[in-house]
Structure formats: C-alpha cells, structure tokens
Measured scan of single mutants.
Amino acid sequence: HNLTITQGKLFFHYNPKLCLSEIHKMEEVSGTKGRQERNDIALKTNGDQASCENELLKFSYIRTSFDKILLRWEPYWPPDFRDLLGFMLFYKEAPYQNVTEFDGQDACGSNSWTVVDIDPPLRSNDPKSQNHPGWLMRGLKPWTQYAIFVKTLVTFSDERRTYGAKSDIIYVQTDATNPSVPLDPISVSNSSSQIILKWKPPSDPNGNITHYLVFWERQAEDSELFELDYCLKGLKLPSRTWSPPFESEDSQKHNQSEYEDSAGECCSCPKTDSQILKELEESSFRKTFEDYLHNVVFVPRKTSSGTGAEDPRPSRKRRSLGDVGNVTVAVPTVAAFPNTSSTSVPTSPEEHRPFEKVVNKESLVISGLRHFTGYRIELQACNQDTPEERCSVAAYVSARTMPEAKADDIVGPVTHEIFENNVVHLMWQEPKEPNGLIVLYEVSYRRYGDEELHLCVSRKHFALERGCRLRGLSPGNYSVRIRATSLAGNGSWTEPTYFYVTDYLDVPSNIA
C-alpha cells in the first residue's frame, strides 16, 4: 500500500525493539523526510534493546553428524571492536523451508527459537588472519532439518551509529543413524509349514526405512522333555500350542467401542483428552525405555581390526524358502538304536541362519518350516543398504507352526516275539517326523474274553527296548493296539495285532 503524509511529521519514542533503520525507511515511504526535528525521533529510546544489523554474515563451514552440527561463519568486528559482546545463534526444527525470524513471537518477546549466546573469538592483530567464530550444536535429532541463523550482539553506541551483522536463515539436516526397533511384532501360524509375521514401523526411523531383515531359527525343545518319565503317576503330560491366527481386521481397528449394538453396526467412541494424553505418555515412556535398553543392555560386537582377528559373527547367506525346513542338525536320541526319531534339535552355532529381506511392506510369510516346531524370529529395521547396512537392534518374537495331521501315527506293522515265561516283546517304529517329539506310547492289549488293559511306555523305555515287553501273560489269544502321544496330543491307534500265548508248562520236552 502507498502511504503519503502531505502535512505533519513523524514522532517515535520509547520503541526499544524498533531499529532506527526501520524508522528511516518509514520517513522515505511516507514522504516526511526532512520535516522531523532532532528530538522527534529519539536516538536513545528507539532500538536500544534490539540488534540492528546492516551487514550480512556468511557461514564459512558446515559439518553434520547424526546428532551434531558444527558451524563456522566469517569474522565480524565493528569499528570499535570492544562493542562486540558476542553472537546469538538461533535454531529450531523446520520440516519445511518457510521459516521466518519472527515465527511464534508474542507480545512478551518470546519466540519459538532456541538461542545460544556465543563469546567472540580472540581478536588477531592481523586483519587478514582473524579467527572464524563458530559453535557445535549438540543433542539434535537424527535425520531432522533445522533452520539456523546467527547475528551479532553489540553494545549501545553513544554516537548512535547503527552497526551489526546478521546471516540469512539456512537449512541444515542432520545425518541418518540406526533406527529404533520395529514396533509390535506379531507372529502367527496359518499352516503346519508357515508363519505369518506382521509389525509396525519404528517410532524413530532416523532416516528413510529402506528394508527390513527377518531372521528365523528353529528352537530346540526343553531338555526336561527328553529326561522326564511322563508315565509316572502324578506327572502331567506336557503340551505345546501353536500360535493362533490373526483376529479379523475389524476387531483390530483402534479407537473402536468394545460393545456392539445388537441391531447392527455401531460407531466408534472418540477417545477423551485424558485417554489420548495417557497414550502419549505411555508411548514416550516406551521410547525412553527402549533407548535405555539399547544403550545399557546391548553391547556392540567388536569388529575385526587390522591384526587379522576374525569377526566372530557368522556370515549372512541367503537361502531359498524351500530350504528352511531342514535348518537344524538332527541327532538321534540314543545312538545305539537307529530307529528312534531325530527330534532332539541342538543347533550348531556355526550354522548360517536363513533370512529374508523385506522391502516396502511390514509383513512376511515364512514358508518351508517344520510342522509343530518353535521358531525364534528376529526382526531388524534398516535405513541404508549400501555401502553397508545400517540397521536397528533386533526385536524378537516366537511362534510355533501348526501340527501336521497323521504325523504322530505309527507307520509300519507292530511285530512281536514270544519268549519263555510268557513274555512277549512288542516292537514298532517311532514316527519319523512327529509333531514336536514323542513323549510316550500307549499300549492297549486284551486277552479274548477279558477286559482291555493299558500300559504306558516312556520315551526312554522305548529307546532301550525298541518297544516294550509284556510279562506274566496268561495263555490265550491276544490283540494289541499302540498309539503315540506327542507334544500336540495323541496320534491314531494302530491296526490290531494278534498273537497267541501258550502255557509254557505244557511245552513238550526233548528229553527222552
């Protein structure tokens, strides 16, 4: 807008934040220059609390790290170098490059900038070799853009010569660093050979998330399962459950009422301010606690030095998902009996873990797994792929695949051998790939016309006998059925096997 004052003059007093240069501009645009008398524009009460600059400061050096910015700028000295009290560095987070010096300023003089007072450097006698002032900004957020400017702080001049310097606002972004852990990993099994893994992005990506790394490792069953005799009275049979499938998407929606109208769909109840505040506090606490764990609990591995020492970490090797089922080394339970199943799973520490690289999504279907087997899954978020990966501390989750139908069934015939004193040795093959492992066998036998009897055969007993022995049988026709019990439950009964026990007292003698 054009402003013209045809008559009258300007009068400025007691404006401590208004620089004289701005008042002189007002004289020019209003056409009143030359009308004012000496005392109409006070030299001592206008701009006496402001830094009124008329020179431009330029930054000469900028260096960044993930949490620091090192700045240096060209030296500046007023005509009387004693008038320079120091520099004021202003900075704040700036997602967009549209910041002005006066953003967030209120009537009390406060604003949204963080201000650092910096002492002037030592003055050199040689004007050509003056030290460049600077400042190291610490405690910054990774991968965050900051708006920065600097200006001088000078003393009051009796001659009211307006001098000083100020830089333009520059924008500097800190470097990326390792992201925080992925949030809320959930693993479920939808079949006997697959596990579905879902997660949420890290709360602090500290860069642009480029991919996720998912490692999985087959877990050995508890050692007590191999040692305890679950045929003993009072000892509860062990059981394991597989990871249940995901709930429906509708039930997972946030901010939804727990109660549904019987007449149909209901609208979600909005969260109160107290609920939102509580969630923010919980989120802040979780982030602080995660940072504490990362800094205190997890110790970084030592990389190899120039002395030739090897990095103890196993090298990563990509495998196809079809090879995942046989990740671990199978060892027989008892070496003397080769027909026992290889369900003991000690994992070799030198073995390469299978892994998958996930790009542009937060889910993965891990296939080719062994049925009813526990897996430990390790999830890392990465925001750099080359020249070397920059990934987060791992988040861990466990899951067990679903049982395989008929995996616990005894394959092959049940054979028998009759000894003296009416002892019958029953023999059968253990299931080759049971659900988890076989903890015991149930032997059901009966003599024709009598009630059915049951015998429990422990895992250890089966390994020693290759089956079991029935003792003290009365003469007669017998039928026997056997079924295995694994961590997933009972298998199917075998087809009945028949044998006849004679009275050993009636056996004919070869003595003449």
Results as ranks from 00 to 15, higher is better:
204 D>P: 03
206 N>G: 03
206 N>Y: 05
207 G>A: 04
207 G>T: 02
208 N>G: 14
210 T>P: 04
211 H>I: 01
212 Y>P: 00
218 R>Y: 10
218 R>I: 06
219 Q>V: 14
219 Q>D: 07
220 A>Q: 13
220 A>R: 06
220 A>C: 15
223 S>R: 08
224 E>H: 12
227 E>S: 10
229 D>V: 06
230 Y>E: 02
235 L>I: 10
235 L>H: 09
237 L>V: 11
239 S>F: 15
241 T>R: 11
243 S>T: 08
243 S>N: 12
244 P>S: 11
246 F>C: 07
246 F>R: 04
247 E>S: 12
249 E>W: 09
250 D>E: 12
255 N>V: 05
256 Q>P: 06
256 Q>T: 08
258 E>F: 14
262 S>I: 15
264 G>V: 11
266 C>I: 13
267 C>Q: 06
268 S>D: 07
271 K>T: 13
272 T>W: 10
274 S>W: 10
276 I>Q: 15
276 I>Y: 08
276 I>L: 04
278 K>L: 06
279 E>A: 08
280 L>T: 11
280 L>A: 01
281 E>P: 03
281 E>F: 14
283 S>H: 09
285 F>V: 10
286 R>W: 15
286 R>Q: 09
286 R>I: 10
289 F>L: 07
289 F>D: 15
290 E>W: 06
290 E>S: 13
292 Y>L: 09
295 N>A: 11
295 N>M: 12
296 V>S: 12
300 P>D: 15
305 S>I: 11
306 G>P: 11
308 G>S: 12
309 A>R: 12
311 D>Q: 09
311 D>G: 05
316 R>E: 09
319 R>I: 05
321 L>G: 10
322 G>M: 10
322 G>Q: 09
322 G>S: 11
324 V>Y: 05
324 V>M: 14
327 V>F: 07
329 V>T: 09
330 A>D: 01
331 V>L: 11
332 P>M: 10
332 P>T: 04
334 V>P: 10
335 A>G: 08
336 A>E: 04
338 P>W: 09
338 P>V: 08
339 N>M: 03
339 N>Q: 12
340 T>M: 14
342 S>F: 15
343 T>H: 08
347 T>I: 09
347 T>K: 13
349 P>L: 09
351 E>S: 14
356 E>N: 13
359 V>P: 07
360 N>Y: 07
361 K>F: 12
366 I>L: 12
367 S>A: 15
367 S>T: 10
371 H>Q: 11
371 H>G: 13
375 Y>H: 13
378 E>M: 08
378 E>W: 07
379 L>Y: 02
379 L>E: 00
379 L>D: 01
381 A>K: 03
384 Q>P: 02
385 D>H: 13
386 T>K: 08
386 T>N: 06
396 Y>Q: 12
397 V>F: 10
399 A>V: 09
400 R>D: 06
400 R>N: 08
401 T>L: 06
404 E>I: 07
406 K>Q: 13
406 K>T: 09
408 D>F: 00
408 D>H: 01
409 D>F: 14
409 D>I: 08
411 V>I: 06
411 V>C: 13
414 V>T: 04
414 V>D: 00
415 T>M: 13
416 H>G: 07
417 E>C: 06
418 I>N: 05
418 I>T: 14
418 I>Y: 10
422 N>P: 02
424 V>S: 01
425 H>Y: 12
427 M>T: 09
428 W>S: 15
429 Q>L: 09
429 Q>C: 11
430 E>T: 13
433 E>C: 03
436 G>N: 02
438 I>N: 05
439 V>I: 09
440 L>F: 03
441 Y>Q: 01
447 R>F: 02
450 D>H: 14
452 E>L: 14
452 E>R: 09
453 L>S: 07
453 L>E: 02
454 H>I: 11
458 S>W: 14
459 R>Q: 11
460 K>T: 13
461 H>K: 11
465 E>Q: 13
465 E>D: 04
465 E>N: 10
466 R>L: 04
468 C>I: 12
469 R>A: 03
471 R>G: 04
471 R>Q: 04
472 G>A: 12
472 G>H: 05
472 G>E: 07
474 S>G: 05
474 S>M: 06
476 G>H: 00
476 G>Q: 00
477 N>M: 14
479 S>R: 14
480 V>R: 01
480 V>Q: 07
482 I>C: 02
483 R>M: 15
483 R>L: 03
485 T>N: 10
487 L>N: 14
487 L>D: 03
488 A>P: 02
492 S>L: 15
493 W>C: 01
494 T>E: 01
496 P>I: 06
497 T>A: 05
498 Y>T: 02
499 F>A: 04
500 Y>Q: 04
500 Y>G: 07
502 T>H: 09
502 T>R: 12
502 T>S: 13
503 D>G: 04
505 L>F: 11
510 N>P: 09
